[in-house]
Nucleic acid binder design. Sequence first.
DNA 1: TATGAATGAGATTTCATTCAT
DNA 2: TATGAATGAAATCTCATTCAT
Lengths: 215, 215, 215, 215
Amino acid sequence: MAPPPNNKVGRARVRESVRTAYREAILEAAERVISRDGFTGVKMADIAAEAGVAAGTVYNYFKNKEAVLESIKLRGFEQIHQQMLAARALEDPLERIRSQVRGVFEYVEGRGALFTIYMQHGGVHEWIQQRIHKKGRGANQEVFARFDQLTLATLEEAVARGQVREDIALEDLAEMLGGLIDALMFTWFRQGCPPNLSEKSDLLFDMFLHGAHAR
Amino acid sequence: MAPPPNNKVGRARVRESVRTAYREAILEAAERVISRDGFTGVKMADIAAEAGVAAGTVYNYFKNKEAVLESIKLRGFEQIHQQMLAARALEDPLERIRSQVRGVFEYVEGRGALFTIYMQHGGVHEWIQQRIHKKGRGANQEVFARFDQLTLATLEEAVARGQVREDIALEDLAEMLGGLIDALMFTWFRQGCPPNLSEKSDLLFDMFLHGAHAR
Amino acid sequence: MAPPPNNKVGRARVRESVRTAYREAILEAAERVISRDGFTGVKMADIAAEAGVAAGTVYNYFKNKEAVLESIKLRGFEQIHQQMLAARALEDPLERIRSQVRGVFEYVEGRGALFTIYMQHGGVHEWIQQRIHKKGRGANQEVFARFDQLTLATLEEAVARGQVREDIALEDLAEMLGGLIDALMFTWFRQGCPPNLSEKSDLLFDMFLHGAHAR
Amino acid sequence: MAPPPNNKVGRARVRESVRTAYREAILEAAERVISRDGFTGVKMADIAAEAGVAAGTVYNYFKNKEAVLESIKLRGFEQIHQQMLAARALEDPLERIRSQVRGVFEYVEGRGALFTIYMQHGGVHEWIQQRIHKKGRGANQEVFARFDQLTLATLEEAVARGQVREDIALEDLAEMLGGLIDALMFTWFRQGCPPNLSEKSDLLFDMFLHGAHAR
DNA sequence: TATGAATGAGATTTCATTCAT
DNA sequence: TATGAATGAAATCTCATTCAT
């Protein structure tokens, strides 16, 4: 057995890692509960039970219920963002986009719950309200901005290479692409999360590039 | 004072119209409340207050809270469906689609609340759960089926006329179209319901037909 | 039997009186609970039970626990003030003071609970904090100001008639008198509220006028 | 490094002094917290934080929350008592009283928190309840008894010397004096602890001896 | 039938105390 | 022995629903 860490630094490090583990366990549990019971009625008690901790413990890690949900959302966005960044290495911008789309779909397919939150909570109404009332909480805004930037930059490169139409504003293109992604996820969700979301990514990409018109 | 209507039929008719008026007032009020405060926290008391009736009165017209929300949703879908049917007269299927899209957008633009509900309540998770657990309530299912049918029929006609690619399954096309519509609404909603949704419909239609690829 | 009030005004009046009755019943109950169990641990559930209403009902009349306690305090101050005003008719200012003192003592003797609150809650610390932090809630401040005025005016008259020393500032005299009253109540309270408080009022008055010095 | 004390006695002494230091630090911290946040809502966590120790540590020195508060109160009373004893040397009983009053005021002026506790906790209601229910805890009773004795003895001496009225019972005189002291403190507290309490002691003494009556 | 207050089950949150390290 | 997080009982508060008028 290794000697127990007797110094303060060691103990602090251990404590920190335990804290992180608890935090994560609670968030994971919350996602599972939401996946199972829906978002509208999540109960703190259920989250605690699912995480295997006492009700009060959740409050050692999160100020209140809202903070838990907010954290889930941010963590999800963060993870999607990482997923998208994984495509950076690809040289061809179109291929990069295709890969990003696939990455997002793969991530979402594994975590339907996140999407529920994305759409039902801050993801949609509350978040909108924030925008409207200008109280925009930094973290959210920033994440969305990063999404937008990533897409815009890639599209710009594609236009520069003559791969993509110039007669539509970059912003509109980005919106259509983002919208298509949302759309597919949305429809997939509406259909009860069948296990085929990521297969749709090539179809989406084809439609994005060529449209439905007969050749 | 005017003499009261003495025949039973007349009295029944008056009563019925009063009932309908109350019902509608409550539904309208509920939509306003949801638009304003978000869906997650709608309170029966708020709905009643907004409608200008007592809390108890709502229960004379709806079994419970769920019934109110369900009614809003159905009424909204119904109205969108009517909007789409208005395009039936157009001879060219592509024009019909363009018109339908515009119609839906115009309707949604005027009633963001509906969309909130569409996505946040039955429209999304709960409704999905129902599908999964096979409790599918008839009304919902039927409405969605009618949407699908309408779109499928129109697309089929367009394919038959050689206006649309044949290499993609009709169902996938319909899904992409429906998805694009959802997508635009979704993005529009995410941006705080700016007053330009219906303008986007031509852009959407163009993208649907021709895609983003450079010519 | 009188005909039931069928008009809106009548019904509103009835309702109003019922509301007032409930409010009073809750406040009375709260005082009883505090007398019995002490102030520190008052529980909303106990108050509701003592008042014979459901827990939730209390919240139809008071925003929260703090509001209940605040109301008790204000009501008590108000009632003491009324008690003091009853002495206005007396012509001799010294007799008026004697009567006021007796009145206050009689009131307090019947309601030990009020005094607890007066000293333990807003009456003492919280209220002080308010003064210090300048957030003085109007109602409290005003009540105390009225007490002070009443006493000052009476003392001024007594000085004018040559009944009271001129070599001590009016404010100091008022403070000593008020302090003596507080003091006796305080001591009485400390001794477990024995049933002799109001008898002390003449003693107090004598001491206030002549002091302890041997003649 | 200095050699560690190797004898048992020395080590025990060091340990004892460390324990005392912790105990005192916790009590001081608790007084500060109460002064700042009021008595009603003191939290063990706040006390610990203010003392710079962990929450659990407090329980190594005090059985529970009640024990902490009780200790503060006793310590305060004890210190006031010491203050009063300092006047014993004075030969003239009236001067002794004047000095005692000043001593008490000086002490209280420096530690408003004690007074809060004196009035809000055991000092007032709870403590009364104990008296009433005959559970009287020895320590409290004894402290108050000592106060009373001290005052009674001094007044008795003053009466014997013909300095104080004989027509009022010693007990009543003591009560009036004690009451006046309480009164001034009370008023001072009610006014937000202005920095002039000890100046009032001569005024109080004058009033106690001569009263408010015009000469 | 409209009213609006009462109800009380149930949710969130707090915090004194315990306990493993 | 100090630490500081876990615990969970208990308190506060909310709000859908009921019900007497």
